[in-house]
């Protein structure tokens, strides 16, 4: 199982903010980039979208482990 989170504009475009996804045994190792396709969010992750795995920035092709939390983050505007 992978827990996926979307924030701000991405959440509103998709119409959901959190989803848990069962990954079939033959699909491991999966990556954030493949999750993006699997969730129907698009063919490729847009360049301005960043990824976090377990609440730390990560690469799109990072191999995921069962139980990971993956978040797709639109452009940040803090401070």
């Amino acid at each position: 199982m992978i827990h996926v989170r979307l924030f701000a504009g991405l959440r509103e475009q998709a119409g959901w903010g959190e989803r848990s996804l069962a990954i079939s045994a033959q699909s491991w190792p999966t990556t954030p980039a493949s999750l993006w396709r699997q969730l129907g969010l698009g063919e490729t992750v847009p360049q301005q979208v960043r990824v976090a795995v377990n609440q730390a920035f990560a690469a799109l092709d990072q191999p995921l482990q069962p139980g990971d939390e993956v978040a797709f983050l639109p452009p940040i505007s803090g401070g």
Binding site: A8, G9, A52, A71, P74, I76, S77, G78, G79
Partner: peptide, 27 residues
């Protein structure tokens, strides 16, 4: 530290004007 907060800490701003919200893209 301030610049890092603006670019690398996961915050998102939405501006509300005339009852309409618009997500701010960038700083």
């Amino acid at each position: 530290l301030l610049e890092a907060l603006k670019h690398d800490a996961p915050f998102w701003k939405r501006e509300w004007s005339n009852g309409v919200g618009r997500w701010v893209e960038g700083n």
